[in-house]
Amino acid sequence: MNMKKSSWLFMLTLAISTMITLSSNNWISMWIGLELNMMSFIPLIVDKINKSSSEAAMIYFLVQSISSMLLIMMVMLLLYKYLVINNNIFMMINISLLIKLGAAPFHMWLPEIMSKMEWSKCIILMTWQKIAPLFMMSNLNTSSIINLSIIWSVGIGSLGGINQSSLRKMMGYSSINHLGWMLAINKSMNLWIIYLMIYSMMVSLMCMMFMNYKMYFINQVSSMNMSDTEKISLFIMMLSMGGLPPFIGFLPKWMTIQSMMNNYEIIMILFMIMCSLITLMYYLRVMMNMYLSYNSSIKWSNIYYKIKPLTFFTMMINLSLPLILVLEMF
């Protein structure tokens, strides 16, 4: 990955800013961590100067600034009232954090800036940028706005990706869908961290493969000169992202279902599972396009094809769930 020297500095401050938020014991310090995070990510977006990245940076700055202003205003009200518990204030804090995350119904900016950024920046936005706001939300009281956001995120994340030709927008809607699942188990710190770790690993591997082949649209997938091994690897990765057993992507959804069943949230979990099937459909649409359409590669040339480390690592990660289950039996 070719990066300027200054980019490594911003990557470092991006990591430090999240650590500041995670290690803080008051709202002001958390807010400072979020602001530093925003100011570190914007230069990374405009690493290569062009119209798209500049537009993405502007949209990101405006959205994050509005949510930050809302957050600090509510925090000041809390301090002014000498920490008197006010549910409306906590609801507004939750809304400001949902805007930062790009959760529905405050989601419109996320797929838009995803389509204007490089894959490497998309990986950071879909993974690392979620940690601090989710951590802050797990320390707040659950309000009705969170439950509404879970339903909206899971629904919009699944339906929004159906009609997309851009892979980056599709991954953006997929991220919104997975965010809904993470919010559903947000009260349990251990569960959402495990979910985010597994999701981050899957998303990073998939986006790295897209980045290697410079794939940005669905119609490019069928014309890629990929080996059969890489095709199978990408196919397995897509199924894993959709949460299909026995792949590793099923494990976090399994944990979520189990946790919600223990809390008797039967109707919500049924809705989430149905929406998960829709996401699986648009993942499969990408893969069917690759398998059933014309392929420019010569089939016989791939018999003695050397498996790339990324492809091998991807397959091992996605097929690790049966191995984990076997190990747990002993």
Rank of each mutant, 00 (worst) to 15 (best):
M208S: 07
P133T: 08
T18G: 04
V326G: 04
P322F: 04
N219I: 09
T142H: 15
M114P: 05
N37R: 03
M197C: 13
L101E: 00
E328V: 06
I266G: 10
L159P: 12
A57P: 10
T256F: 00
G160F: 12
M272P: 00
I176A: 00
Y195P: 01
F90N: 08
L323W: 07
A57L: 10
V63Y: 06
L321K: 01
N163L: 14
V154H: 06
M224P: 01
S222G: 10
M215W: 03
S301D: 07
Y216N: 02
V221E: 02
S96Q: 04
I32N: 01
E328G: 07
N86S: 15
M1R: 02
I194E: 05
M237T: 13
N262T: 11
I218D: 10
M290K: 03
P246W: 04
L125Y: 14
K4F: 05
W181T: 00
A103E: 01
S120F: 03
L244Q: 01
L101G: 03
Y304A: 07
I278Q: 11
K81S: 12
H178A: 08
M260D: 06
S54M: 14
S200D: 07
K121A: 12
M39C: 12
N139T: 10
M272V: 03
N87G: 03
M202G: 04
N26L: 12
S320W: 06
K231D: 00
V84H: 06
I176Y: 00
V326I: 13
N2K: 08
L323G: 03
N25P: 14
N86V: 14
L310T: 00
L323R: 02
V84G: 02
M74S: 09
R285T: 04
I151E: 07
S138I: 05
L71P: 05
F217P: 02
T314A: 14
M1N: 03
K81Y: 11
C207F: 11
K4R: 03
M274D: 10
L79K: 09
G180K: 02
M114Y: 14
F217A: 02
E265Y: 06
K51A: 10
V63T: 11
S7Q: 12
E55G: 09
N94H: 09
S52P: 12
N263T: 12
A15Y: 01
M209Y: 04
M224L: 09
L22W: 02
L78A: 12
I123N: 09
S165W: 11
S54H: 11
W31G: 13
P43H: 06
N88L: 10
S222H: 10
L98N: 02
N177V: 04
L148A: 12
L71F: 09
Y80W: 06
N94G: 13
L12K: 08
G102S: 03
W31H: 13
G172N: 14
I32Q: 02
N289M: 02
L79W: 07
E35M: 08
W109I: 15
N26F: 14
S96K: 03
S138D: 07
S320G: 08
Y264S: 07
Q129W: 12
I85W: 05
K169N: 13
W109V: 15
H107W: 00
M201T: 04
M329C: 12
N186T: 06
W254A: 01
E230S: 08
L9N: 03
R168M: 15
M136W: 11
M19N: 05
Q220W: 00
L196K: 10
F235M: 14
M197N: 10
G157S: 03
N289K: 01
K48I: 15
I267N: 14
A57W: 08
W27P: 05
